[in-house]
Design a protein around this nucleic acid. Sequence first.
RNA 1: GGAGAGAUGGCUGAGUGGUCGAAAGCGCUCCCCUGCUAAGGGAGUAAGGGUUAAAAGCCCUUCGAGGGUUCGAAUCCCUCUCUCUCCGCCA
Length: 421
Amino acid sequence: MLSPKLLRGETDKVANNLARRGHELDVSGYKKLEARRKALHMETERFRNERNVRSKSIGQAKAKGEDIEPLKAEVDKLGERLKDLEGDLKVVTRELREVELGLPNLLDESVPDGKSEEDNQEVRVWGEPKTFSFDVKDHVDLGGEQMDFEVAAKITGSRFVVLKGSVARLHRALIQFMLDTHTQEHEYQEVYVPYVVHAGSLVGTGQLPKFAEDLFRISHEQPFFLIPTAEVPVTNLARDSIIEAEDMPLKFVAHTPCFRSEAGAYGQDTRGMIRQHQFEKVELVQIVRPDASYEALEQLTGQAETILQRLNLPYRTVILCAGDTGFGSAKTYDIEVWLPSQARYREISSCSNFETFQARRMGARWRNPETGKAEVLHTLNGSGLAVGRTLVAILENYQREDGTVEVPEALRGYMGGRETL
RNA sequence: GGAGAGAUGGCUGAGUGGUCGAAAGCGCUCCCCUGCUAAGGGAGUAAGGGUUAAAAGCCCUUCGAGGGUUCGAAUCCCUCUCUCUCCGCCA
């Protein structure tokens, strides 16, 4: 959510920034609504004041033993009008909040213009796409019987997978390796969190109210959802709280499954493990002082890249252009790993600075020692990394001519010393 | 699942219809005193919003959430959520 003050005070400026994303803010509609809210608000306050003052005088009159009946009747009438006003104000406030919750974040100045993925800018490239002297197979062929989409479809449906044997173990090894690296070398605290969250948490991180169709909703009575990313429960750790400056930055890493309905992705990446309804991810989250968030974004992105470097997987990092930057993000780097079967880079991590966008929705603040006040903090997150896609990248990049796959050196300790899958 | 207790400011914790945005303590800030591994005294200290060029001041809202009673609710009633204790069940 944007600062209501900023939105009110500099509506046109905000509209211009949002236009870079292709989001059109209805300025006159917003201004009209806001003007109505303000008028109602002031009128309501006036009536409340009147009521409070008079009620107090009734109390005093009663204490003196005076007749208070006529006074009561008078204030009673006032109360009726007040009730109407409060009702109207509530409706308008709710409408306005709906509008505010639907607005994406402001973009950082360093975000390049552009409409789509094609306008993203390469920031750096690491490693070189390996050349193969034979026809490369994709991960589905390489996984063979140990990557079973058919049985998963029987159990559940499309976009699920069953992993077996050494592929299942490699999958688990990747999780361990990522968690160990981030906790031991990058000083993240490992956390275990709920995979089911209520709507408030999703509003906090920005998935709701706008992107409900991307989520799996469970339970009929209570609005519970499966998490689409660990970002939701982990960032919400700071919900409704005030963090002391000396405790910052808070750095959390969590491994969780992620569940996405992938509505609207029909026909995309239907083969293999690239796009699944359920996948594992190791997620990095930082809760930081506002003046430190951009430094933290660079750090966090670099930490995610470390994993690919250790696995010796070629990748590149791009900065997302205005049109491709996610709803809540002010600035996002995507890390893309090289997939030989597709002969192109594919997203494996997305690292974003949300500035105050999520914190404001969540009520997450920190105590600024300079002002002594509780102020809205900044949140960031990034995949470190998407486990399923990392598995895909390993299978494809480490394949041999005979269809076997070499185990990356960094993972052998997690694989009982095996050198081949 | 059954029975009971509770939810108050950064924290602990008083407060059962008006003078309570709320005692006290802790913490924090400032000042005074003191010279020795410290302590003592005083003052201030909830958040959000409106009015303002800004501040002061004034006003509104907020005592888990939502609804209700009342001229007036932290305080009474209803619903919900969460926490704790005991019993039952259980990975």
